[in-house]
């Protein structure tokens, strides 16, 4: 691969990491396993970099490679650790590829939506994501039950999703 192609490939792969992660996560349903599959997928993508034709649809190719890695990891994994059955996976994969087509715009909009959260919601999100705290740790730190924090996190994620969708719809209007 020429230096230009290699640089372009690095850039494409780097720009698509969050999209790839969302795709893998949705198919394995577990953050730790998603990390492993991501790592393996990145290795394979690089090994197969020469097969990618610049100018063609990078994400479609990337998702295909990731799908095969997900399937390989399912074969290796303990049956009890597999979240979905093999009937659901192909359908979910197809919908996921389409669903995550516009991750970048949502990523861009998220910052403004985070600022619209209440201070309490922002604090819990920060503790969960920036500091990586568990439910139990957050609950102990802020003096609420783990169940209450779980609910709050769930509601906050939902309202962020709605906010992002609304903002993009307004932008596009």
């Amino acid at each position: 691969m020429s230096q230009d192609c290699s640089a372009e490939f690095v850039q494409l792969l780097t720009l698509n990491q969050s999209r790839l992660y969302a795709y893998v996560l949705s198919l394995v349903g577990n953050a730790t396993r998603a990390d492993d599959v991501m790592q393996e997928t990145n290795v394979v993508l690089w090994q197969k970099a020469a097969e990618f034709t610049p100018g063609t649809h990078f994400t479609a190719w990337m998702f295909r490679v990731a799908y095969l890695q997900v399937m390989a990891s399912r074969q290796r994994a303990n049956r009890e650790k597999i979240l979905f059955d093999s009937e659901l996976i192909p359908e979910l994969a197809q919908e996921a590829a389409a669903h995550f087509d516009d991750v970048e715009s949502r990523q861009r909009t998220l910052q403004a939506c985070l600022e619209k959260l209440s201070p309490r919601q922002r604090d819990i999100i920060r503790r969960r994501y920036s500091a990586g705290a568990t439910l139990q740790k957050i609950a102990a730190d802020v003096g609420h039950s783990a169940e209450a924090i779980k609910q709050l996190l769930f509601r906050t994620r939902l309202s962020l999703t709605e906010c992002v969708k609304r903002s993009l719809a307004t932008e596009g209007a």
Partner: peptide, 23 residues
């Protein structure tokens, strides 16, 4: 399925936004 995918996406974006995902 759409709700599940939305949820996966938001989890990813929040990780990204908070610098937990690399890149």
């Amino acid at each position: 399925r759409a709700m599940y995918l939305d949820y996966c996406e938001m989890h990813t974006l929040l990780q990204w936004e908070h610098g937990v995902l690399g890149g």
